[in-house]
């Protein structure tokens, strides 16, 4: 789906700073790369700035009262800071939001119709609809149901579906697992991998559930209070004890809550192998 050479990142973010209401700075210089056709996870605690990062990529609207105040976002080589969401969607950057991810007063079918797909004939639109129902067969019998009546899992599938109808090159997913049962999460995770594998779509995934995130992702970034504090291939991150300790809940009895605090006191805590 992409013509970008293997070496060039599809998405390159450098020193990104974002402020709400002109004063409240939520990102303090985030740098990350997403290579084509990979799944990259962005993990971190509540309020770390994950949603803000995805929203900055996808674009703010007036009511957000938010702006990129520094740094750059490059998509396929083009700078896109502070572009409106519809323009980014037209470029192929499509977001599955954390909350309010479907139109509750529209039916399932209408939630797919609504997407203003770039350069799509009606035949292609029909093909995309079918693709969605093939990827998420559970949605097929619900076509005529109001989206507001769907279960959390169905709603998440529909949100993925309506994003896919937008023909994404880069899919931004904010909280894959939030509020979903483990079985559903596993199922969704498999489908995300299928989307990447079969459609060639690149995925940037935000997750609080680090275990889930690192299980699907190829590469991961850890973000704390608006800073990237750790990055690496997913497999490697999974093995890091501080990740295990603070995000996977494998350690007990430690008073230090934040990874950065831990890093600043290198002698503290068992198994800290940081250089």
């Amino acid at each position: 789906m992409t013509n970008v050479p293997q070496a060039a990142p599809l998405l390159a973010i450098d020193d990104l700073r974002v402020a709400y209401h002109r004063v409240a700075v939520a990102l303090h210089g985030v740098t990350l790369r997403v290579m084509p056709q990979t799944i990259v996870a962005l993990v971190g605690n509540n309020g770390a700035g994950k949603t803000t990062a995805l929203r900055a990529i996808s674009g703010f609207i007036g009511v957000d009262d938010a702006r990129v105040i520094g740094g750059s976002i490059r998509f396929a080589g083009r700078r896109i800071e502070n572009e409106p969401p519809h323009a980014n969607t037209a470029r192929g950057i499509v977001l599955v939001p954390e909350r309010d991810k479907v139109f509750p007063n529209l039916t399932v079918a209408e939630n797919l119709t609504v997407a203003a797909t770039r350069r799509a004939s009606s035949a292609e639109r029909r093909r995309l609809d079918e693709l969605v129902f093939a990827l998420f067969p559970a949605l097929a019998p619900l076509r005529a149901r109001l989206a507001g009546l769907l279960s959390g899992g169905e709603r998440q599938m529909l949100a993925f579906g309506s994003a896919i109808v937008c023909k994404p090159e880069l899919l931004l997913v904010d909280e894959l697992s939030l509020g979903l049962a483990p079985v559903v999460v596993d199922d969704l995770a498999r489908r995300v991998r299928a989307i990447r594998r079969e459609l060639g779509i690149t995925v940037l995934l935000v997750e609080q559930n680090v275990g889930v995130a690192l299980a699907i992702a190829d590469y991961g970034y850890v973000i704390e209070s608006g800073h990237v504090v750790l990055e690496g291939p997913a497999g490697e991150l999974r093995g890091r004890p501080e990740i295990q300790q603070f995000y996977l809940g494998l350690a007990t009895g430690n008073q230090v809550r934040r990874y950065r605090a831990l890093r600043e006191r290198p002698a503290n805590g068992p198994g800290d192998r940081r250089q």
């Binding site: 996808s58 674009g59 609207i61 009511v63 957000d64 409106p84 969401p85 519809h86 969607t89 037209a90 499509v94 977001l95 939001p97 309010d100 991810k101 479907v102 139109f103 509750p104 007063n105 529209l106 209408e110 119709t113 609504v114 997407a115 203003a116 797909t117 770039r118 309506s162 994003a163 937008c166």
Partner: peptide
Amino acid sequence: AWGVRMRAAGQNPLLAEQRGIR
């Protein structure tokens, strides 16, 4: 489609923009 988009924009303008609707 444009009719559905008008309804959608009324419900959630942000999501409408994110679905490519100007």
